[in-house]
Design a protein around this nucleic acid. Sequence first.
DNA 1: CTGCATTTGTGCGTATGTATG
DNA 2: ACATACATACGCACAAATGCA
Lengths: 87, 87
Amino acid sequence: MTADEIDHEAETPVYRQIAAVLIADIERGALPVGRRIPSESDLVKRFGVARDTARGAVRYLRDEGYVRTVPQRGSYVLERRRPTEGG
Amino acid sequence: MTADEIDHEAETPVYRQIAAVLIADIERGALPVGRRIPSESDLVKRFGVARDTARGAVRYLRDEGYVRTVPQRGSYVLERRRPTEGG
DNA sequence: CTGCATTTGTGCGTATGTATG
DNA sequence: ACATACATACGCACAAATGCA
């Protein structure tokens, strides 16, 4: 999914749409454990959004336990994510 | 123009104000073709801004076709700039 | 080749102002 | 008032390549 796929009119916030793309990449192994996910700048260019929005996506992944952000380094895919409801 | 002349309150973004100074220098020959423009660090010191802002000015000059940036070298004044509207 | 300074590239942290729904 | 989103701006740190001694 690229900039063309982002729906700014949708009910789902743009940052969540981007997060969904990254989560899908993680789930299917395109982004394996330990791998660094695209940088905020990468997401800005790829999806054509503001850095603030790209940061929102990364923050969401972090909150959900998918990645760990290392200052000045990037965000890396974690082994297992934090369960949100016991699944 | 130096740091004293930058207006952080103006509608025109700081990076554009700095770019305008450099463009004026190019237009009047103070920065001739082939000449390297001040480095990002130079602009930071001269105008008292963050590197991010100085980079914005250089990026603008590059986008407008005034200079060509060579990694690890600097940005050099080009022969002619890319026309933006047919001028 | 080594050591150092310079300069751009990259990347995250943070804050402010503006606009929209 | 609040969440989302974009643009701008400052701060800090490390990497890579170049140039010079």
